[in-house]
Amino acid sequence: MHSVKPPAIHIDNLTLGYERHPAVHHLSVEIAPGALVAVVGPNGAGKSTLLKGLAGELRPIGGHIRLADAGRADVAYMPQRSEMDHSFPLSVFEMVAMGLWHEVGAFGRVGAAHARRIEAALTAVGLGGFEARAIGSLSGGQLQRARFARLILQDAPLILLDEPFAAIDARTVGDLVRLILDWHAQGRTVLTVVHDYDQVRRHFPHCLLLARELVAYGPTAEVLTAERLARARRLSEAFDDYAPECHVEEAAEARR
């Protein structure tokens, strides 16, 4: 008899927000180990907020997140590129080396074996020979490749990507999609915020459609229907950004 693996991510009645105003509310879903999931929805649907909650950067207002792996060190999270300070004086080598923080610590020494792994990661993303370049000199596509090299070094079982394909060239998008598919083939769990539904249909077997609340989760063809996309738009348009604080306990009690 085969044992059933626990979900990689278990979310129970989760509410996330800022200053207690909900950006995602009363979300319950389970993500299986090794799933490749596109997180989709209208602008302002709470997609980035959800990833921040899973990465431990945003504390829940209510509800729970349980990860199958040991802790947050097992999560590799890449926020949107707009959140980076590109002017910081770092070389590509130094930036990518940050992916080893869980092994060497914030101020640990990068030895020869680590340097070889950094060079291998850069080669894997098409940036071999870029080690000494300043990150501020990179194009948008090159910078995104370097960020993926850093993720390779983190070697995490759970990978969270927030809009990794935004504002980069088609060739880079193709190369990064292949890396994501490789991670999926290795059995890693990958959640990716994606805006292009054609990309989602081509490459992502599962889809989580969000509009501040869960609209649908499951096989992509079953989630990305005209009816469900229209419902997501209606929910997003109806949401009041100036609504009062979310009283999680009261809402949970009302559903009983």
Rank of each mutant, 00 (worst) to 15 (best):
G141K: 15
G141Q: 12
Q142D: 01
Q142E: 03
Q142N: 01
L143W: 07
L143A: 08
Q144Y: 04
R145V: 04
R145T: 10
R145E: 03
A146Q: 08
R147Y: 14
R147E: 05
R147C: 12
F148Y: 10
F148E: 03
A149L: 12
A149H: 13
R150N: 01
L151T: 15
L151V: 14
L151I: 15
L151C: 10
L151Q: 13
I152E: 13
I152L: 15
I152Y: 05
I152P: 06
I152H: 12
I152D: 08
L153C: 07
L153Q: 09
L153V: 12
Q154A: 10
Q154S: 05
D155H: 13
D155V: 09
A156V: 11
P157R: 15
P157N: 13
L158S: 13
L158D: 06
L158A: 12
I159T: 09
L160Q: 09
L161Y: 12
L161D: 10
D162Y: 02
E163D: 07
E163K: 07
P164A: 00
P164M: 00
P164C: 00
F165I: 02
F165S: 01
F165L: 09
A166L: 04
A166H: 13
A166G: 06
A166D: 10
A166I: 04
A167T: 07
I168T: 05
D169V: 01
D169A: 02
A170I: 15
A170R: 07
A170G: 01
A170D: 07
A170F: 12
R171T: 00
R171K: 02
R171I: 00
T172F: 00
V173A: 08
G174M: 05
G174D: 11
G174W: 03
D175S: 13
R178M: 02
R178E: 07
L179A: 04
I180G: 08
I180P: 05
L181Q: 14
L181T: 04
D182R: 15
D182L: 05
D182P: 00
W183Y: 11
W183V: 09
W183F: 13
H184I: 04
H184E: 01
H184S: 08
A185M: 10
A185D: 12
A185F: 08
A185I: 05
A185L: 08
Q186I: 00
Q186N: 00
Q186D: 01
G187N: 12
G187V: 10
R188P: 02
R188C: 02
T189R: 04
T189S: 11
T189C: 06
V190R: 00
L191G: 01
L191D: 00
T192R: 10
T192C: 15
T192Q: 04
T192I: 09
V193R: 05
V193N: 03
V193L: 09
V193G: 05
V194E: 11
V194I: 15
V194M: 05
V194N: 10
H195E: 03
D196H: 11
Y197M: 14
Y197V: 11
D198H: 15
D198R: 15
D198W: 11
D198K: 14
Q199C: 09
Q199M: 15
V200F: 12
V200W: 08
R201T: 12
R201A: 14
R201N: 11
R202F: 03
R202G: 00
R202N: 08
R202V: 01
H203L: 01
H203K: 03
H203Q: 06
F204S: 06
F204T: 02
F204H: 02
P205S: 14
P205L: 12
P205I: 12
H206T: 10
H206K: 15
C207W: 06
C207N: 11
L208A: 02
